[in-house]
Design a protein around this nucleic acid. Structure first.
Length: 649
DNA sequence: GAATGCGAAGGCAGG
DNA sequence: CTTCGCATTC
């Protein structure tokens, strides 16, 4: 038998996948069946056994965590650093390509990345400029619309002549938003992927270069790919590279952001010699848990079919506890964890899972009251904090003066006498002349179109940014950050904020300096440290709490728990409308309103039936009816005119 | 015109 | 808990 550690300890199916000679492989890997293991060992086997250069391997994952883990494990297995190997998220790799080909992709060299908050601000600004009433056109759905279309690989031009007035407006906003981004030299997350895709599509020479370079393309969590990501892979691997696709048709959790399980089904058409291997042995869960999971999965549509089994044993049955309210739920969970610890179990082996981060609050309070240490994953992450984003905005301006979102964020922070009126004038001028806010403020000042006060304040701001930029040139990264948070006046500004809030903000700013000190430029990148750090901040928002590894109960969303293992797991808040989430129940994805002014998913109260959720409606005028799912009494159709439903928040 | 303080409203998941 | 829109004060 083979003594290579690369094949050691793999079961038959895993070994078949790892060593398959077939160029194109699809590995259908059930939960807990050793998916990451197979990917890592496949890479190691290509390098070690088949003499493939790491330089010719591209591995794509969805989360930074998965990418990091994969790189670490490959390096352990090969016992050498694998800097040449391209492992990363779709967004990370796209970013890397655009940094190399910025000119070909029609971007400025110092282009920066907008996170979703930046994107929303930018969108609001554009909508104000178009004079759109934001009651009638809520910005969030528009943001969602734009991102969803971009994830489908579309541009506003793809729609041609449009008659639908709603779509017309959406496209108008989108077009203006794209122009504003291009002017400011910023790209949102979806743009990273779309630009790279278009680069490949429109520049055969560049595509050809990468096709020749990458002889092997590996993709993790393939069931979560959306249309643009699929096309990306298809283009890159279309030149004859071998694809190694790992996915689970039963585990798609990102349908809401355009992921298409159908992509797995499509693979067979685009890669005709595709060979399929199923990993069905689960190493994580007991028979009882698998039985429950299989019973649910059976109802999925579009399955390729898989039967998970385990030899761990039956284990204890899955228990369901119905709590009166969330406080009782929390105290039940805490009691069980107490019992677990009393029997010698560790607290870190207990996971409390919920659907949305907001649900952690009740548990945090209860855990705190019970003096039980815990750790929350997710939530507001480090690089998303208010004060951190302020500091990053200054840093971004030292790199790229035309970064309008950053300009708006800090032009009057700390307050220096530049108010809404002045900013509105700047926006108007920038729009008219198709220039950035930074340029607009110089022009308006030169033309003496501003009040003396605004003019002086803007000059002070310009001088400040120019001075900071000059000052930090050539300094080590963390000193650059330190100089900017102090020189900008942000530290002084937050010192004035009363109480613990201000202190916490200062601590976070200091923490940003530490983060910069510990930051290493991505291997193989020739970017300036600051530019690289700023991209890193946008692409990887960081953990909310990185604190000491005490023996803590683990709290996280289901999404962040994917791929992890815990002996004792609590699934909390399995409530109608919350889990599964309203959105996934009402997949009809365009929010409509009933004639009575109620929305689908709206919570309502009825005098006799109690509280419920609006599922559907039909008819118009006095005959209009709504279908309501009452919390205790099933669903009923009610005529709006008679039912006297009271809308709840 | 800008800064500050207040009340009201909305809140999902990751890059 | 936060961000926002608005009224009041500087």
């Amino acid at each position: 038998m083979d003594v290579s550690p690369i094949l050691d300890g793999l079961n038959d199916a895993q070994r078949e996948a790892v060593t398959a000679a077939s160029q194109n492989m699809l590995v259908l890997a059930g939960a807990g069946s050793g998916k990451t293991r197979v990917l890592v060992h496949r890479i190691a086997s290509l390098v070690e056994h088949e003499g493939v250069s790491p330089y010719a391997i591209l591995a794509v994952t969805f989360t930074n965590k998965a990418a990091g883990e994969m790189r670490t494990r490959v390096e352990q297995l090969l016992d050498m650093p694998a800097g040449q190997l391209w492992i990363g998220t779709f967004h990370g790799l796209a970013h890397r390509l655009l940094r190399t080909h910025w000119r070909d992709a029609d971007l400025p060299q110092g282009f920066q990345i907008l996170d979703s908050e930046d994107q929303l601000r930018m969108l609001k600004r554009v909508m104000r400029a178009l004079d759109l009433d934001d009651d009638k056109w809520p910005p969030k759905p528009l943001q969602w619309f734009i991102n969803a279309r971009k994830d489908e690989g579309k541009r506003p031009q793809s729609f041609g002549q449009v008659r639908d007035p709603v779509l017309q407006t959406q496209l108008k906003v989108w077009t203006a938003y794209e122009a504003a981004c291009q002017r400011a030299g910023v790209v949102d997350f979806a743009e990273l992927l779309l630009r790279t895709f278009e680069l490949f599509r429109d520049r055969p020479d560049i595509l050809d270069h990468y096709r020749r370079r990458f002889s092997h393309v590996l993709v993790d969590e393939f069931q979560d790919t959306n249309a643009i990501q699929y096309d990306w892979i298809r283009l890159l691997a279309g030149g004859g590279a071998g694809v190694f696709i790992v996915g689970d048709d039963d585990q798609s959790i990102y349908g809401w952001r355009g992921a298409r399980v159908g992509n797995i089904l499509r693979l067979g058409k685009d890669f005709p010699d595709l060979q399929t291997v199923r990993l069905e042995q689960n190493y994580r869960s007991t028979g009882m848990i698998l039985g429950a999971a299989n019973a649910l999965i059976e109802h999925n549509s579009e399955r390729l079919g898989k039967n998970l089994w385990t030899d761990i044993g039956e284990g204890e049955p899955v228990r369901v506890f119905t709590a009166f309210n969330e406080r009782e739920e929390a105290s039940f969970v805490i009691d069980r964890i107490r019992e677990w610890s009393a029997q010698g179990g560790a607290r870190r082996e207990c996971a409390i899972l919920y659907r949305s981060n907001a649900q952690s609050r009740v548990f945090e309070e209860a855990l705190m009251a019970a003096a039980m240490p815990y750790r929350v994953y997710g939530g507001l992450r480090f690089f998303e904090r208010l004060e951190i984003k302020d500091a990053l905005a200054y840093l971004r301006l030292t790199e790229n003066r035309h970064d309008d979102p950053s300009f708006e964020r800090v032009v009057n922070l700390p307050t220096r006498g530049i108010g809404a009126k002045t900013i509105e004038d700047l926006r108007a001028a920038a729009r008219e002349r198709d220039i950035s806010l930074w340029q607009a403020s110089s022009r308006l000042r030169d033309e003496r179109r501003l009040t003396a006060r605004a003019s002086a304040a803007l000059e002070a701001f310009h001088d400040l940014v120019e001075r900071l930029a000059a000052e930090v040139t050539g300094l080590p990264l963390h000193e650059q950050v330190d100089a900017v948070i102090r020189g900008s006046g942000l530290i002084a500004h937050y010192e004035k904020e009363k109480g613990e809030r201000g202190e916490a903000r200062i601590e976070n700013l200091e923490e940003l300096v530490s983060a910069a000190r510990g930051y290493d430029v991505e291997p193989g990148s020739d970017m300036e440290p600051l530019a690289s750090f700023l991209a890193h901040a946008a692409l990887e928002a960081g953990e909310a709490q990185g604190s000491a590894w005490e023996d803590c109960v683990q709290l996280m969303t289901l999404h962040s728990a994917k791929g992890l293992e815990f002996p004792l797991v609590f699934l909390c808040g399995l409530e109608d409308g919350l889990f599964p989430h309203q959105r996934s129940l009402l997949a009809a994805a365009t929010p409509r309103e009933t004639p009575g002014g109620m929305k689908l998913g709206q919570r309502v109260a009825h005098a006799r039936f109690g509280e419920g959720v609006v599922l559907n409606f039909e008819g118009a005028g006095e005959h209009a009816r709504v279908e309501v799912n009452f919390h205790d009494g099933g669903t009923k159709w009610l005529v709006i005119a008679y039912a006297k439903l009271e809308p709840l928040r």
